[in-house]
Nucleic acid binder design. Sequence first.
DNA 1: AATGAATGAGGCTTCATTCAT
DNA 2: AATGAATGAAGCCTCATTCAT
Lengths: 214, 214, 214, 214
Amino acid sequence: MADGARARRLPRAVRERQMLDAAVRSFARHGYQAASMDEIAELAGVSKPLVYLYLNSKEELFTAVIRREAQALLAVVAEAVVDRGAPPDERLWAGLSAFFAYAAEQPDSWAVLSRQARTQGEPFAGEAARMREEITAFVAGLIGEAAREARDASAITERDVAALAQALVGSAESLASWANETAGVTAKEAAATLMNFAWSGLGNLMKNERWAPR
Amino acid sequence: MADGARARRLPRAVRERQMLDAAVRSFARHGYQAASMDEIAELAGVSKPLVYLYLNSKEELFTAVIRREAQALLAVVAEAVVDRGAPPDERLWAGLSAFFAYAAEQPDSWAVLSRQARTQGEPFAGEAARMREEITAFVAGLIGEAAREARDASAITERDVAALAQALVGSAESLASWANETAGVTAKEAAATLMNFAWSGLGNLMKNERWAPR
Amino acid sequence: MADGARARRLPRAVRERQMLDAAVRSFARHGYQAASMDEIAELAGVSKPLVYLYLNSKEELFTAVIRREAQALLAVVAEAVVDRGAPPDERLWAGLSAFFAYAAEQPDSWAVLSRQARTQGEPFAGEAARMREEITAFVAGLIGEAAREARDASAITERDVAALAQALVGSAESLASWANETAGVTAKEAAATLMNFAWSGLGNLMKNERWAPR
Amino acid sequence: MADGARARRLPRAVRERQMLDAAVRSFARHGYQAASMDEIAELAGVSKPLVYLYLNSKEELFTAVIRREAQALLAVVAEAVVDRGAPPDERLWAGLSAFFAYAAEQPDSWAVLSRQARTQGEPFAGEAARMREEITAFVAGLIGEAAREARDASAITERDVAALAQALVGSAESLASWANETAGVTAKEAAATLMNFAWSGLGNLMKNERWAPR
DNA sequence: AATGAATGAGGCTTCATTCAT
DNA sequence: AATGAATGAAGCCTCATTCAT
């Protein structure tokens, strides 16, 4: 239906890709439980039994979706971060830009990873958590690297780094969704906001200028 | 079952509270779709028709839950922020502390608001978004107030403020979940991390020391 | 449909009986796999969800059917055998008569027990086997009792008794189905055939007059 | 899968035999309904369309299986019975021995004939009944022959003979399954038990020594 | 002679919801 | 104020069967 004249007799790999694409859309829009295999099959332009023949069950289909999308996002971010032998702040900037660009260009993929996968309990949450941890580890690595270069590195503990990485990833996620919903906010702009907000604050921290109540 | 001998003929207000409490637990644990009216009725210690008599439908029940929990969270944060005539950073600190404390003490409530409500599409996401906007507005207000006191306030635009508030709220949410999952992290500690991370970065920004690529 | 005006709002016990009755018919006619919950519900005059509410699943429904029918058959046979303080041959005669009468009057019940339950693998076959063993044990007891009264009891081993009981039960089953399919064969007649065939042969055996090849 | 390297381009007769062999196993293990054409094709080492090309449908496949296995069993028994010009009891003994040996050596075949075919309703039950009638007719013939040789043949009616044959076949079936399930029971032993049980009882009958109640 | 690709139809099961008391 | 009895609608999944090569 989706394509008008349904192409028949395609190789398995092509059909699987179509099914995963359809599943991403459907899961993003309705969530795991509310998405129906019927709709996914129709979006993919195939019959339901074929979806089961190739992907086995709703659960395996969702898992396959999460894995594929998580790989795609990780690949994009990793390439941006790794490519340069630049200083940590430049690399973080590159990674954030790539991340915001991905979230903007693949909103369904981002919605599945950020919203749906994490709220469906095991085994899905675990799958998504694994990806988030990889990203958080990247970020923590960059923060740690910067900290070691600072003049008073001893002021920052490992837990500080972990907490900061959590905060930075969380604000990135929040900004990504906000940017997707707010007209005219570009990936570069979101990345710049975050660098201003986070990295320069980080600088203060390294100079041991901590905020304290009273 | 929940209370052994089921109390009969309670006033409506009491019964409604029992039902909403049960619903919060059930929705937090299973999500909106997977939670069943059967389980909620049993947890509440009443029959299903009574749930329908008072709350009308699963959708209205979920909406009622979101409203009640959102009100509770807002009330806690608002009281902490408003009570003082203190400077903005102190008030933000107080608000963050109250927020982290709430998330830690009412994990089911926080799970429903942060995870379930936002992923179920309309009308629930809207309900949750409204609450989030109120909190973001609080934060934006505090940031704006601080900015106006800074010597070079003109450097910060309204959109800057909005984006910063989004980032701050996002990192708070991320830290709250992280704190709930990580042993030994207290609300005060999470709030301190966030103040260090965010507020001092904000300070730099106000001095117009922006980070820029290259 | 089955009853014209569907009686509404009956007590659970009554509904359960109706459902089990319908299930006996359906399983007897089509077998476990081919019987459909749809048909059973319709035969019982209720909706499918009610069948599931009370009997939980097709598997549990079939198990409940086997148990109920096995109990009924056992009760009929046990009463016939136990009631008398008569000699073993009279008691066997009474048991066989009762058995053939049951098989003739409740052909669906007998079909489920003899044909369907035993061919569906575990756990059903086990349930049916348990009942068959109880009956076989009855029979073996009577044969053993008769043997002990015979003048040369030592000629008969335990394995002889077990094998003879198997043979007797098997011929009873075969005769029961044959009698059900052949017009004009009464329960008494089938029982008499079997007594002639089996018990008098047994007598020879006890006199140690064994048949041997050559 | 079954043979490692799948042999290609075999003559039709060979392929059909492979398929029927696979079907016997599958039907014996799972029953007609639960057996799947997928499994049968895989067991046979061919693709599903080939099974359909040769055997047309699941129903025809099952019918072909029943026919082939019934022929095999009948052939074995017939040969044993016919080969000798011996007295009826010797010939019955030979037939029973052959039957028990077949049931022991081809348990899947025996399971299909005795358990599955008879429980699947028409047209399968009819097919199996036809084979059973042929065997019963053999037995009835032998009994009749013996009766005519007895000194008081007039005491035995045709219906007596038919009933006795039913009983004998039934006990043979029961003993066959029992022997298959009970360690250490040989075909000869089962046949001997049955001859002792049945034939000598038959002898009494022919002397008109009938058992009667009271 | 043989198969990878594909589907119509139907079965089991669950759930939100209502009726009658 | 409260509930036992009951169902319409829909979802996941499987299977026998066929098409095109």
